[in-house]
């Protein structure tokens, strides 16, 4: 029971880290970045190559993967999304899907479709509390999630850049009038989101060590669900949504049915949205006539 709970929180922490990327980008650019899941996959592959082919130790390879994904995020934003700043959200959505196809197929060409066995990045002994054992990966994942959460909250609340970010998400035009560089702020958001995706990629692949070009797709969708679950655009909401989703998934697998676990996760999402149509912590938007 406790074991399931810890597994759930650990899986949920990964979802939460991914969901943060979704929710920040949504809050600022008002777009659903469907390519986010594939950035996770790229992060996984980069760290895999760094350790297996270049023989780098764990921490530099993770840093390398964060760096590459951050750059990738900025490049994607500049090339594909920036020209569409004024376009309808559906057009941007389709472009994001195009980027997602591109990343998946580029990975297919570079690394082939054969699944790669991901090395265990967290080679530490499991922690034993009483008669339950917590694997080191779960522990590191949960700690990483907490650290990221605290850092992000401090960043958005205390720093000037964070304040600019909140201002842009509130009202883009007014922020620009106040002398905030909107384009730079949006780029920064993509950079942070993609860097987080790299971390999530490493953690996800350490827990589920098969790496394929489609690895990021399903966790991406689930994390997106988590972001909506918690109220999209809200950082604590993404955290809460991610962790709840992870717990529901693991308990659904353990107690109800392994095959139907995804169906259970999505059913809970639908129930929540019926009761609270803007997610758990989402703001209610009143309509102007």
């Amino acid at each position: 029971m406790l074991n399931y709970l810890i597994n759930g929180i650990s899986l949920g922490s990964v979802y939460a880290i991914i969901a943060l990327g979704y929710t920040m980008v949504y809050g600022i650019a008002k777009m659903l970045n469907f390519a986010h899941g594939d950035v996770i996959m790229v992060g996984g592959y980069i760290s895999f190559c760094a350790t297996s082919y270049l023989g780098l130790p764990v921490i530099p390879s993770v840093l390398l993967s964060i760096f590459v994904c951050t750059v990738l995020g900025i490049v994607i934003e500049r090339l594909a999304y920036k020209p569409l700043r004024a376009a309808t959200s559906l057009a941007v959505l389709i472009t994001a899907i195009g980027v997602s196809y591109f990343l998946q197929n580029a990975a297919l060409l570079i690394w082939s479709s054969n699944p790669k066995a991901y090395p265990n990045m967290v080679a530490l002994p499991p922690l034993a509390i009483g008669n339950t054992q917590i694997s080191a990966v779960s522990l590191v994942t949960i700690i990483a999630c907490i650290v990221i959460m605290v850092a992000l909250t401090l960043f958005t609340n205390k720093t000037k850049m964070g304040k600019a970010m909140r201002a842009v998400s509130e009202d883009k035009d007014a922020a620009q009038l106040m002398g905030i560089n909107v384009n730079a702020t949006i780029s920064l958001t993509f950079a942070i989101g993609s860097g987080l995706a790299a971390v999530a990629g490493v953690l996800l692949c350490s827990a589920y060590p098969t790496l394929m070009p489609t690895t990021g797709a399903m966790p991406g969708i689930k994390a997106f669900t988590a972001a909506v679950f918690g109220g999209i655009g809200s950082i604590p909401g993404a955290m809460l949504g991610g962790i709840l989703l992870g717990i529901i998934e693991i308990f659904g697998k353990a107690y109800i049915s392994t095959q139907l676990s995804d169906a259970i996760v999505f059913s809970v999402l639908i129930l929540i949205l019926l009761v609270k149509p803007t997610g758990l912590l989402g703001r209610k938007i009143s309509e102007k006539v």
Partner: peptide, 21 residues
């Protein structure tokens, strides 16, 4: 009953549920 992106995500969820079932 839902609107905008929330409606989109619920249709996505239903699609996945149908596939799963």
């Amino acid at each position: 009953r839902l609107r905008g992106d929330y409606l989109a995500i619920v249709t996505l969820a239903f699609g996945e549920i149908i596939k799963n079932v």
